[in-house]
Design a protein around this nucleic acid. Structure first.
Lengths: 222, 222
DNA sequence: ATTATCTATAGATCTATAGATAATGC
DNA sequence: ATTATCTATAGATCTATAGATAATGC
């Protein structure tokens, strides 16, 4: 496999050669993802991780050079997962015959599900960036790529857009959705009306807002 | 001074009786606010704090029972500052003759300035909540209060609102502004169009969006 | 024969205290 | 006389390694 740009020798991690090696590494990463999210990176000892992964501390250090390397491996795993999912999600053939609102709905629903399934997904990654500032660009870069892909899916349907500047409007509408999705997720914004809505209601509300901003024309489906 | 609900004996802190005592406590809190924000609570040693505050570690422990007590004192200070500022900001006499858009602009501008001046303001508070989950409600409660106060300022001008449900719309519009302000602040959302705008442009953009959502009528100010 | 796992522990922090010294303000 | 500050350090982690034992797969 080609080296990813965020990997380096600093991020040493053993190339497991046995089946159980891969399984242990996965268990360690799963344990770390949960604990780093719940308690933070520093508050989590390598012993905590080992215990939750049901292996010894020595085993952890056999697979990972040091504690940092665990965080870097989590970052790597998150980037790979994100890349794979994003690539599949924005494949043009997947959206043949779909309207702009269908695409936006797909994006919102996917994000809501992902936020629920893996709450620690991003926290761990941000930790890695703190440990090695050189990584700072990688994640935003990937998100920008996803955004651009979504935007070009939308602009391929620009006849639906009533806004005078479709380029600007489509980018701004995506920002809007991302901002609202985050606000809903944010634990200390639970006072808002946004958080009181069910997933379904939330989705419809924000889509209505985006549609009104873009001034989407009804394309005459059924 | 009356005890605040988030204070308790767990949050022990010496009642300084000399001038320099108050100054030292402030220096310690300032140092901690910065360091907790930059490196996180666990990664910051009490010695780090003492050094930045230009005092000894023994002095820190003279004023604060333990490391947690520093975080709690920061939380306390943030709550008090927030309360004072919010109370002044939403005083009805301050907004006599102002339109809804003036009020919203005031809110956005204030938040932008505060985010810039004290980036660690809220991080430290969130740390305290993690250390004592019983605090979890206090901050959202205060924000809700501010929101309600803003909302009632807006609803006092409901004749400007064209939206059929002013109660819902005004709450939702505030949520929208808060979400967009956060997205702009979020360091790993720097890819967005939101972050590319200047403060001035950003303010006008989000106000236009809120105005369009509320369907504000021009009240005839030239 | 190689790779993965374990136990035990050295060495490096870091928190919190003890005890001595200096500054304050009545 | 009281309060604030300092230095020095005990005791409790926590990271990372060494060295022995067990499992894998050629």
């Amino acid at each position: 496999m080609a080296k990813r740009p965020w990997q380096s020798d600093l991020h040493w991690r053993r190339d497991g050669q046995q089946d159980r090696a891969h399984k242990t590494q996965s268990r360690v990463l799963d344990a770390a993802e949960t604990l780093f999210f719940e308690q933070g990176y520093e508050a989590t000892s390598v012993n905590n991780v080992a215990k939750r992964a049901k292996c010894s501390i020595g085993s952890v250090y056999h697979h990972f050079k040091d504690k940092k390397a665990i965080a870097f491996a989590l970052f790597d795993r998150m980037m790979a997962d994100f890349e794979a999912t994003a690539k599949e999600a924005v494949a043009p053939e997947r959206w043949e015959g779909a309207s702009i609102i269908d695409i936006l709905r797909g994006f919102v629903e996917f994000t809501l599900i992902n936020n629920k399934d893996r709450p620690g997904f991003k926290t761990a990654a941000l930790e890695a960036v703190r440990l090695d500032p050189a990584l700072a660009g990688s994640f935003p870069k990937q998100q920008r790529q996803l955004n651009r892909a979504l935007q070009s899916l939308i602009l391929a349907r620009r006849t639906e857009i009533g806004h005078p500047d479709p380029e600007f409007a489509s980018g701004y509408a995506l920002d809007l959705l991302i901002a609202l999705l985050r606000a809903r997720r944010d634990p200390d914004l639970q006072q808002s009306q946004l958080s009181k809505l069910s997933d379904k209601q939330f989705t419809e509300q924000v889509l209505a807002l985006a549609a009104s901003f873009l001034r989407l024309q009804n394309t005459g489906k059924d």
